[in-house]
Simulated assay, not measured.
Amino acid sequence: MVFTHAPTEVDGAVPSPTERARDLADRLVRPTAADRDRDRRWDPALFADLAAAGVAGPLVPRELGGGGLTATETGELLEALGEDSRDPGLALAVVVHAVLATVPLRAFGTAGQRERYLPRMAAGEWVGAVSLHQTQGAALAPTVTARAGLGGWVLNGEVDLVAGAPVAHHFLVVAVDADGGRTAFVVDRDTAGLRVDDTAGPAAMATCPWGRLVLDHCLVADDAVLGAAGSASTEVEPLLATLDWVFTSAPWVGVMRALTRDAVEGVRERRLFGRPVAHVQSARFALADLATRCELAAGLVRRAAGRFDEGERPSHREAAAARLFVANAARAVTEGAARLAGPAAFSDGHPAGRAHRDALFFAETGGGTEVLRPVIAASLLALG
């Protein structure tokens, strides 16, 4: 799959999607982030503003109402959103909708599926949701089963950690049949037998809406199948894993850069025992470590995103390595920024404290080290 940018006459005459995302993040997202985090509140008006700026469908082709951006440009947009919003939860919700729920439809959807879903998703009218438990395919035990019948399928099971569930119009679900085959489905919220429980959710990423999807003899038609029946393990799931590893990492590059900049300003202003903290060697070393991790993380994510623009997906090893490094860097940078900020960092609503909490959660998703390290090792050893 190649993501290419189709220039138009207005290119350069109006702010780019990245510039618009920065403006909205700075004016609307960041000022309300602490309150929304405390209240665990999703703001549909805020998402509508971001969608109007092109954030909801950057990889959707322009002829289907999207931004038509390249993967590299999309990564830059998501970095900007993370940097200027300092809101990892909202950024995750955006990535799940704009990338994880959208790109598989673009890649494997029928013409009818693409025309039905993608324009409305790009406009922010319909929100797509995906479980972070299902982005790693066969690495995790199946929780949804599928039984083929006359003209359709019956789905049963439960899926936890569904990002966007309470506000979603439809869900990307992978189910396992009696023979062990894996099939991907796009299931609309109003399908009989589908229920959303929005009471469950992690303590972290509080500005992302979470829920559990319950499928109880849920009957879906054959046209709900995404890609070929029984082929999700070779089609949708490998793509979903690389998208997850690369694009959920992109906002964290921006968040880390913003926190590093905040830490620099804080060190310049603070004094310790009458001495400027900027003159303390340990503080200088800490800042150097934060900045180095930020730039290394940015390089890995941008290189992996660029593979999509070269007509290929990043290798699982490359994508997994980027995610593993960014996850470790996010923990280290948010902890370092919080320490440099002092006790205030762990007061209610401080961006460094919130980001540190969210970074610990981020490090455990995407399969965590239990999936990422074996993927990298297997590739190095040519084991598949």
Rank of each mutant, 00 (worst) to 15 (best):
D26R: 15
A52I: 08
G211C: 08
D188P: 09
E235F: 02
P44K: 11
R357C: 06
L118K: 02
Q136Y: 11
A263D: 08
R257W: 01
T334E: 02
E9S: 13
G349K: 13
H316G: 06
G65L: 06
P58E: 01
D49P: 00
V55I: 12
L372E: 02
T183Y: 01
L383G: 15
Q134K: 03
D37K: 09
C208M: 14
A363G: 03
A178T: 13
E158M: 06
T135F: 03
V267G: 01
A224L: 03
M205T: 04
P17G: 07
L240Q: 07
T292P: 00
A123Q: 05
R307L: 12
E9T: 14
L81P: 09
D179K: 10
T183Q: 05
A224K: 04
S16T: 15
A298N: 02
V371G: 05
G57A: 11
P374D: 00
I376A: 05
T292M: 10
A283W: 09
D188F: 08
V127A: 12
M205G: 02
A93L: 08
A52L: 08
G211R: 04
A163M: 09
V375R: 05
L272A: 14
G227M: 06
A321N: 03
A141D: 14
E76C: 04
A163R: 00
P104V: 05
G157P: 03
A91S: 15
L383H: 12
P88G: 07
V225S: 04
D289E: 15
R354L: 13
L155I: 06
G82E: 08
G149W: 10
P142T: 12
